[in-house]
Simulated assay, not measured.
Amino acid sequence: MKAGKSRLEKVKKSIGFSELIVVDAKGSASGTCAMWKSSVSLHPIEFNKNLIVVKVTKAVCDWFLVGFYGPPYATKKKNAWENLMALLESFQSLWVCMGDFNFIISDNEILGGNRGGSSATNYLKELIFEFGAIDLGCSGNKFTWAKRGWGNSAIKRRLDRGIANISWRLAFPRASIAHLGAISSDHAPLLLDTNPKDSFAHRPFRFEAARIRDNNCNSIVEKACNERVTGSAMVKLCKKQAATREALRKWNKEIFGHYQDKINCLMNKIAEVQKNPPSTDNGKIESVLLTDLSEWLARSEVMWRQIKRTVAQRRG
């Protein structure tokens, strides 16, 4: 993570979070950060350039969440991994550890590049053996890191994952990790869901300023307003408003859709493309999807700005 604290403060506000921990990047070394909502009972325990540890307090049980970055350089690996193992050893409770470990644990987590064995210590394997830890598995793209993009010459690895002690897994038997699409990064983000739900409620339709970004918006409104209606001037106005509202509702459902639905769909498509074998065609498809995603993210940003203004006006 190369972003500074001021940039991360903006990101925190834009996604509705209130709390932030930042370990700034120094030189070529990346930093780390954690964000959460004040409604979550979470307490920072330790943080440095390689890890962030927080304690999650729940009614059922307390547990530790560790975000870890394993240095890729041999000279720095030993110290970082020894610190992580000492930390996990000190926990007398449930824990889960996620992040970029910069190690694989089997040959099927490699695509392309050199498959030759290495005499160097695999600290991830040692940790799993030492603590009897469980790999939480994943859904989505099998690989989480790619070199030279995701095209023909891509080299892919599963360097990022989540592991936990047996007690944590027993406490959260339905917990799962999803590999999301890699957007403007060589790493795919991980999403840990401790209690997956089967369905989500839909939000009611509301017209928002971001829809003006779509070229079809004006024509939808113009066509509805130009419909021939009868009655007094007031009745005609009401009928045209009703027709416009219905046309926009239909357009929203059939064509435009909900922002997050569209964004999720595009991210899923990107993740699916990144699952496929590297090829020129897949690279072109990914490029188009990333362009579409950027537009929908821009629309979403406009929507949230409008919502914030509305909330601020209501509060006076």
Results as ranks from 00 to 15, higher is better:
Lys5Cys: 11
Lys12Phe: 02
Ile15Thr: 12
Glu19Ser: 12
Glu19Cys: 15
Trp36Arg: 01
Ser41Arg: 11
Asn48Ser: 13
Leu51Gln: 15
Val60Tyr: 09
Trp63Phe: 15
Phe64Ser: 01
Val66Glu: 02
Tyr69Met: 07
Glu82Gly: 00
Ala86Met: 06
Phe91Val: 08
Leu94Arg: 14
Ile104Asn: 10
Ile110Lys: 10
Gly117Trp: 06
Leu124Gly: 02
Gly137Pro: 05
Phe143Val: 11
Thr144Gly: 07
Trp145Gln: 10
Lys147Asn: 15
Trp150Asp: 07
Asn152Glu: 12
Ile155Arg: 02
Ile155Pro: 04
Arg157Asp: 04
Gly162Phe: 06
Gly162His: 00
Ala175Gly: 08
Ala178Met: 07
Ala182Asp: 07
Ser184Met: 13
Ser185Pro: 12
Asn195Met: 11
Asp198Met: 13
Pro204Thr: 07
Phe207Cys: 12
Ile212Gly: 02
Cys217Leu: 09
Ala224Trp: 07
Ala224Ile: 07
Cys225Gln: 10
Ser232Val: 11
Val235Asp: 15
Lys239Trp: 01
Ala247Trp: 05
Trp251Thr: 04
Asn252Phe: 13
Asp261Ser: 13
Ile263Ala: 09
Leu266Trp: 08
Thr280Ala: 13
Asp281Cys: 04
Asn282Arg: 05
Leu290His: 02
Ser294Tyr: 04
Ala298Asn: 05
Gln313Ser: 12
